[in-house]
């Protein structure tokens, strides 16, 4: 019974983003139907739901969403833990740039991927540690503390690359962002998402880390009084967020086979925060929902893809995106739902 109530709580949280996602896909199908003047062609070539097989690998808009959304989804996993502690990590976009820059420079120097990848991830975790020290030990407000690295991090990435775009050629490094496995023909970045989801889930829910994170986020003082080492819990969350940003940074660099310190991961921290919040984790800290964050990430990417498909210019695209996020947040808000149902009942009577 206990597990049931626990699951049902996570389930009710995930209902809204899933519904929103379904609705968004429906909108795309309707838009297709309008442009084709027919409903029967929902799966034909060029349609949103169409999946073709090129060289035996599936491709199409849905596959693209999983592929391109992988960075936000991975960021959202780390962001979930940080937000659950009552914080926020604005620096993930900049850390992506640092990670990509490090990997590109080392690859160009001729180091093998087995050395390059661990070093890039290690540096990303050091970035997370920096945030963790500022927030956990020095008690600086998370939004300010991580803003520092958000601004400074791009400068660090520029210094690493010598302020230029560095292109690289390495089969392994290129595979991370573009590869397909023969036995599992999904985009490799999305497979990374699934692996990271599993790792995060096991390391939070199969250990006591998840409980301690939620406890610190829900009431830091009471947690400390109960013997929880709140500082280390907070630092761990930021280090893990840095690690996730490192992986997302490798994917971003691999996608374009280059490190672009100015544009890699730009504004992705916002998408990651949206994904986490849409997925049911409150910005005030406490309970977190990993599955919700992944669905939230897919939702955000679907929105972006829809904009591109409808030829909305990239400069205007954030507006409709913000509106959809607002709607999902409103539906999630119990206060808003109660108000809505009250007005509804009043109209009926």
């Amino acid at each position: 019974m206990e597990t049931k109530t626990f699951r049902s709580r996570a389930a009710t949280k995930i209902v809204w983003p899933v519904l929103a996602l379904a609705l968004l896909i429906l909108v795309n199908v309707l838009l297709d139907a309008r442009s084709f003047n027919s409903f029967t062609d929902a799966f034909r070539e060029g349609a949103f739901l169409h999946i073709s097989f090129k060289n035996g690998y599936p491709s199409g808009a849905l596959i693209d969403i999983l592929n391109h959304g992988s960075k936000v989804m991975i960021l959202a996993l780390g962001m979930s833990l940080v937000i659950a502690t009552g914080g926020v990590d604005l620096s993930v976009g900049a850390v992506m740039a640092i990670s990509g820059a490090t990997a590109a420079v080392l690859t160009v120097r001729g180091l093998p991927p087995t050395v390059v990848i661990p070093i890039a991830l290690l540096i990303s975790m050091v970035c997370g540690l920096w945030n963790g020290i500022l927030v956990g030990m020095l008690k600086i407000q998370p939004i300010v503390a991580t803003l520092i690295l958000m601004v400074a991090g791009r400068g660090v990435a520029q210094m690493i690359t010598g302020a230029q775009i560095i292109t690289f050629h390495s089969p392994v490094m290129e595979f991370i962002g573009n590869g397909r496995l023969a036995w599992l023909p999904l985009p490799f970045p999305f497979i990374l998402v699934l692996i990271m989801l599993f790792i995060t889930w096991v390391s939070t829910r199969k250990t006591a880390i998840g409980l301690l994170v939620e406890s610190v986020g829900s009431n830091p003082t009471a947690s400390r009084f109960a013997g929880v080492r709140a500082t280390s819990v907070i630092m761990m969350a930021y280090i893990f967020s840095g690690f996730c940003a490192g992986i997302a940074g490798l994917i971003a660099a691999s996608n374009i086979k280059a490190a672009d310190p100015t544009h890699a991961g730009l504004l992705l921290e916002m998408d990651a925060i949206f994904a986490v919040v849409v997925g049911g984790t409150a910005l005030t800290g406490g309970r977190f929902f990993l599955g919700g964050a992944i669905i939230g990430g897919i939702l955000i990417q679907t929105l972006t893809t829809t904009m591109y498909a409808q030829d909305v210019s990239a400069d205007v695209a954030p507006l409709p995106k913000a509106i959809v996020v607002l709607i999902v947040c409103l539906i999630q808000s119990e206060t808003f739902r109660n108000k809505l149902s009250k007005t509804w009942r009043r109209k009926q009577s």
Partner: peptide
């Protein structure tokens, strides 16, 4: 403020 963790369950 110093005792209970409000959001967490009794368990």
């Amino acid at each position: 403020f110093e005792g209970i963790i409000p959001e967490l369950s009794v368990r």
